[in-house]
Simulated scan of single mutants.
Amino acid sequence: MNIPQIRMESKFARIGIAHEPPVQEMEQPKAELSIQQPPAELTIERIPGKLTIDQVQAWEEMNLKSPFRLTEEFAQTGYHDWLNGMGRIAEQGDELMRIENGGNPIADQAKENSENPLYEFNIGWIPSPFSVKINYTPGKIEIQSKVNKPIIEANPNKPVHRYRPGKVNIYVERLNSLAIDFVNRKV
């Protein structure tokens, strides 16, 4: 038997989702760094030591004198000898002037004038102790240093951040539908 029928066919709507993920990129550039180290400043002042040795007295005691000193001494000795000779001649003249007082002044004076004088002699080439004068002034060293600090310049670079947000697209992939059909119907 054929019974009339109504056939209904329905389809649900289908939603489609297209997803595009987000993209994030981060980059950290290196910092720009400049370091300079100025050299230290060093100043050294040196005052040299001074040594003086005076041997004049030692040389003179060994009779090794400079020509100027010898000339000066000879001049002084000659002057003293000349004064002594004048005094002796004056004294002998006074004795001859008083010849009447007795004695034998002519023979005494002849004997005195003809004798060589006695000279003292000693070892002349050995100077006395401490005849060489030594003086020493020590030197000085002054050191001054100045430390220069390093010059550091740092420029940090900001991070580079790139971000592209993700997308979600929602769309209707299939629309809902309802299909109605009549079967076995009599018209």
Rank of each mutant, 00 (worst) to 15 (best):
I6R: 08
I6A: 07
R7I: 15
R7W: 05
M8G: 10
M8D: 06
E9F: 03
S10I: 03
S10H: 07
K11I: 00
K11Q: 11
A13C: 07
G16I: 03
I17S: 04
A18C: 02
A18W: 04
A18L: 14
P21G: 05
V23T: 15
Q24S: 04
E25V: 13
M26C: 03
Q28C: 02
P29F: 07
E32T: 05
I35G: 09
Q36E: 10
Q37V: 03
A40I: 00
L42I: 15
E45I: 05
I47C: 05
P48W: 01
G49T: 00
T52P: 01
D54C: 07
D54W: 00
Q55M: 11
A58I: 01
A58Y: 06
E60M: 11
E60Q: 14
E61S: 11
E61Q: 15
N63C: 06
L64H: 13
K65Q: 03
S66W: 06
P67W: 02
F68M: 11
F68I: 11
E72Y: 02
E73K: 00
A75E: 04
G78C: 10
G78D: 11
G78H: 12
W82I: 00
W82T: 06
W82L: 09
L83D: 01
L83Q: 08
N84C: 02
G85S: 05
G87C: 02
G87R: 10
G87F: 01
R88H: 06
R88G: 00
A90L: 05
E91G: 04
G93M: 00
G93C: 00
G93E: 01
D94N: 12
L96W: 10
L96I: 02
L96A: 07
R98D: 13
G102M: 04
N104W: 05
N104R: 15
Q109H: 14
Q109C: 03
K111C: 00
K111H: 05
N113Q: 10
S114A: 13
N116D: 04
P117G: 15
L118D: 08
Y119D: 12
N122M: 13
I123C: 05
I123Q: 12
G124V: 08
W125Y: 15
I126F: 09
S128W: 01
S131R: 08
S131A: 14
S131V: 00
